[in-house]
Amino acid sequence: MLRYLARRFLLMIPVLLGITFIVFALLAFAPGSFVSLMLSSGVVNPDAIARVRDELGVNQPWIIRYVHYLAALAHGNLGRSIVFDQPVAQQIAQAFPNTVILTVAATVFALSVAVAAGTVSAIKRNTLLDYAAMIVAVGGVSVPSFWLGLMLLLAFGLGLHWLPIGGGGAAGGRGGWEFLSHLILPAVTLGAELAALLTRLIRNTLLDVLSEDYIRTARAKGLAGFRVVSRHALKNALLPVVTTVGVQFGALLGGAVIVETIYSWPGMGLLTVNAIQQRDLPVVQGAVLVFAICFVLVVLLTDLAYVAIDPRVHYQ
């Protein structure tokens, strides 16, 4: 296990270097000089421009600038926002918890819907219920999330007035229902695609598992149908779900950019989109880096979880 862990961490080094290089290249090789970017974003203060030129050392060769960039990163310095003139790390620190809340809520929503719908579909195979669930599941993968978000907003926010149409987040001391009510629509919108994907996955794996010998044995022992499914079958059918959730987490982070924009959820996605509109590229750069590192860590965690959960998996 230790050797596996060590190998896994060592393999992350080239990936992390690659990520930081691409993120660095985003700004370093951007068309137009950095100063023109600042001018186009409305900064005309010559002192500010001179300071940034100095800080970035734009006249040095790129390899040296990359090393400087890595050194700055090691000190937790993600650069300064051009528009707000404050550290990017500070802006990200404010937005990050909200994106975590949103993605976790979306995953919880997706998992609960998928386990329920997938199980019912598998047990009631080829019934009307099964077909209905599968049609919704296939539709769920095909509907663009920004459109689903607007439709939910139209129905539950503007039409029925059940839920607020935007805002929310961890800051501001909102608690209880006030906080939850802002979270429901974004989490459902973001989790819908994953829910659809997982429903199909759980249904199909469960169908495979239900035909295994040990399930027949459990039934032969006289266990109730519900117990067989919940204790014996579902537990094994959930293994591929762990991997899928990990891999799909990247899609969830990308989706967060769109969902946060629709509902003005003050997370990393909204921060990124606003920064793009203001041409505040250091913020975009920092946010992308944090997004990518998050994803790498989640994939690592799912890999480790998989090894921990399933004794049949051998780590080499």
Partner: peptide
């Protein structure tokens, strides 16, 4: 693959 596709 380490980047969330849409973010990149």
């Amino acid at each position: 693959f380490a980047f969330p596709f849409l973010v990149l």
